[in-house]
Every structure is written in structure tokens, then in C-alpha cells.
Amino acid sequence: MELAELTALLTPEGLRLVDEIGAIDTPADVAATVSRLRAAGLSPELVSAAVGQARLRTRARQKFGEFAERMLFTRAGLEQATRLAIGARHAGRFRDAGFARVADLGCGIGGDALAFAGIGLQVLAVDADEVTAALAAYNLAPFGDAAVVRHARAEEVSVDGVDAVWLDPARREAGHGATARVGAADWSPPLDWVFDLAGRLPAGIKLGPAFDRTRIPDGAEAQWISVDGSTIELVVWTGALARPGVRRAALVVRGGGAAELTASADAEDVAVRPLGAFVHEPEGAVIRARLIGEVARDLDAGMLAPGIAYLTSDAAVTSPFVQTFRVREQLPTDVKALSRALRERGIGTLEIKKRGVDVDPATLRTKLKLRGSEAATLILTRVGGTRLALLADRV
């Protein structure tokens, strides 16, 4: 969104138009709506801004639910925003620690700040991009003086008077219109500054789940979070926001439930075990937190192969920390032989899982030429130097 579009949007006419457009689900809907509004004599800037917002609101329902209907977004801001349900968990940690005033440094479109203000915290929200800060101010307006938004660089803002800080470094590279993340040496705010501040004030630092673990400060709690099968973020907690004795945590949220695994350090992997009746795939947060061994010991399972995140056991298990598959049989790994075996079994719908092998599931699925009415999961991995193809069913 350019400044001209923002100016057109933040008017009674613009905001009313976004509400009137309602949900836009497809490119065809976009084209039809644009044509209709332009034919009605509306300006290109207003039409572009209003239709863009209607489309973003539709997409934002996944993260913000009904709140999306009164929010404004940029494409990059929505992609980078924390889901409201996860933001509420972050906010709860600040509240439970007894903090009342939080600075959100790098607030984006205000997703986390919305969660903070929503449970009664006083929020100072800051973003370096002018358009993004303006949208955050609009999104946080219902909270009145409880949420103050500033257009500024995080390093330039005084944190005197706040109890704790929330930081989201590695901001977009080129402002509100881009989605690429900056390189490790060029984060904004700079990581050295971020970690220095987090050493002086209790902090939550939102990072990508693949963040270099060697850069996590000593004494901090590192919490990886998975939502509905996707590992979405790492949060580094410092000071009173870090739980005593917890240095590694894996929070798994699926549907309406959540479960968390915590430990004082990385867990050692368990021993390798021959393939059993079941294969278990740990959630991404568990893998990133290096707590596979904790899960394996709890399930009485073994590693299927060294260094590969598949577990195996002979007993069925129920755990929020793994996806479990019942092994039907082992199939050949040669593509032609595998294709023939799957067709003989009537497999027309195939989920392909893989670890430790260089296979593109989309390309392989095309080569398999599947047909039939049955569904199954194909697990591709290796044990030592041997490739393994396992036909399985989700439990």
C-alpha cells in the first residue's frame, strides 16, 4: 500500500466502502469488484485501496477471526503478524509476571499489541514504517489511551516507564510492501541492540523458528511454537518472563487445544530401534527445541535412524507431540516398482512424508501416476545407507 492509497482509505468514504465490499475470495471477485467500482466513477486510488483491504480482511480471518472485520492491513504486515490466539498467550505471560506496561518495538500492523491491550495492559506500539504505523494506530484505536502508537525506529524510543518489552526484529527488508526478511547482519533493530535491551528489561523476542540457536542468550528461555502442524515462530524470553529452570520449550497448538513440553536443556536422543508397527513424526516445535528424546522416552519409542526425526514403536500411542502412523508394509523405493505397487493396492490419494532423502513430493506424485479409490501415507526415509518406503495410515 502506497501513501496515496492510505490517504484515500482513511476517510469515512473509504472505510465505508471497505465494509460494503465485504468478503472477496477469488481473483475473479477482485476483477469484478474493481470493474464495478470504477464504472461507478470512484478514483483508482480509492478502488485499489478498498478492494485490497477487503481481500486482506478475508485472508486475515484465519489469524484474527471476527476481529479482522474491523482491521486494516498491508500484505506483508498480515503475513508477519502473530495469530491472535498465540498473541493472547504471549500477552498472558506478561500479565502473569505482574507487568502492566509493555513496549511493542516493531509492532507491525499491531497484532501483538492488540492482544496485549485486549487483556488490559498499557501498550506503547512502535513501528519504523509510516504506513504500517498508521494502520497499527487504526487497529488499536478502540483501546483509546491504553494503546499509544508511534512512528519511529525502535532504537530511538525511550523505554523509561515500561515494565517489559516485546520485540520483533528481522523486519521486512523494504518497508510495508515487501515480504523478504533481511540478512543476519542487517536485522532491524540490530540483534546486538535487541539482546542488550533484553538483558536490561524483561523481554519477549519473536524470531523465525530456524533462528541460529548459538545466538540465543545464555539464561534465556527458548520457546518454539507449532500451530496446526506448522512451526511458526521461536520466542526468546528473558528476565522475569523466562520460567525458572526452563531453557527449552515446545508449545503445540492444534485445533482448540494446546500442550507444552519443557526442559532445562536439549534432550539426548534415544537409541535406534528396528522398525516397529508404528512410526511417529514429532511436531516441528519438538524437533526445533531438540526435545525428541523427551518425547521418545515418554512413548517408550526408539529412533528409526540416527539424526532423523522419526520414532518407531510396537504399541499405539496418543500424544499431542507426535503424528502417528500405523505401518502397513514396506514397498520398493524404485519409482516404477513403487508406482506399480500403489496401483495394485488401489491407492489414488497419497500423502507423502519424507525425511533424510532428497525427494520432491510433488514431482514424485506426478511420476507415480496414481489411480484408485483408496488413501494412504507414504513415508520416505533412510536407515543407514538404505532407503525406506513405508506405506502407512494416520492413526
Rank of each mutant, 00 (worst) to 15 (best):
E2M: 09
E5S: 01
T11F: 02
P12C: 10
V18Y: 02
G22E: 06
A23H: 13
S35D: 11
R36K: 15
P44T: 04
E45C: 00
G52T: 04
G52V: 00
Q53E: 04
R55W: 14
Q62M: 04
F64L: 00
F64Y: 13
E66A: 13
R70K: 15
R83Q: 09
G87S: 07
R93K: 13
D96K: 15
A97Q: 11
G98L: 10
F99D: 02
R101C: 06
V102G: 11
L105C: 10
C107H: 01
G111W: 01
G111E: 03
A113L: 04
A113H: 05
A115F: 07
G120N: 05
V131E: 09
V131A: 08
A133H: 08
A137Y: 02
P142S: 03
G144E: 01
H151Q: 05
H151E: 02
R153C: 10
A154C: 11
E156C: 05
L167V: 09
P169Q: 13
R172C: 08
G175K: 14
G177T: 12
A178R: 15
A178D: 09
T179I: 14
A185F: 06
S188E: 15
P190N: 12
P190C: 07
L197H: 07
G199I: 09
R200D: 12
L207C: 04
D218N: 09
I225H: 04
G229R: 09
G239H: 13
R243F: 03
V246R: 14
A250W: 12
G255Y: 06
E260W: 00
E260I: 15
A263P: 07
A263N: 13
A271P: 00
F278H: 14
R288L: 08
A289P: 05
R290P: 01
E294S: 12
G302D: 07
M303H: 12
L304C: 05
A305C: 04
A309F: 03
T312D: 12
S313H: 03
A315P: 00
A315Q: 14
A316E: 13
T318Q: 15
S319G: 11
P320W: 14
T324Y: 03
Q330S: 12
T333C: 13
D334L: 07
V335P: 04
A337S: 12
A337F: 09
S339W: 08
R340A: 15
R340I: 06
A341V: 07
E344N: 11
R355K: 15
V357T: 07
K369Q: 14
S373L: 09
E374M: 12
T377N: 07
G384C: 06
G385F: 00
A392N: 10
